[in-house]
Structures are given as C-alpha cells and as structure tokens.
C-alpha cells in the first residue's frame, strides 16, 4: 500500500481535510476576515478623512 493511498485506515487525516471538516473554525475565519479586511479597515479609512478648511 503506498503512502498516499486515500483509503489507508491508519494514516493521520491531513490538516486541510481537518480544517474543511470543522464548520465552526471555518465560520470564525469566514466572519473575521471580511470584518477586519473590509469593514474595520473601511471604517478606519473613513474616520481618518481630514476636515475641509
């Protein structure tokens, strides 16, 4: 049986497969990333707009 046999019963589950099998971890990532990259960064951009003279 070769090392990469997908049906090996003893081999450990690959990390990526474990991640994809964990909906709550994915939920955390899927909410945090846009909250930070889109919403938070966007609001910071707006709040740092200077006042017109």
């Amino acid at each position: 049986m070769n090392e990469n046999d997908p049906n090996d019963l003893n081999a450990p589950v690959p990390f990526m497969q474990e991640l994809l099998d964990n909906p709550f971890l994915l939920l955390f990532l899927g909410v945090m990333i846009p909250m930070v990259v889109y919403s938070l960064w966007g609001v910071i951009d707006i709040l740092t707009i200077p006042v017109a003279k």
Partner: peptide
Amino acid sequence: AERLWWKHP
C-alpha cells in the same frame, strides 16, 4: 467515499 479524500490525486 474515501477516508482521506484530500489525498485523492
């Protein structure tokens, strides 16, 4: 079908 589908080529 496969236990370790991530390894499927």
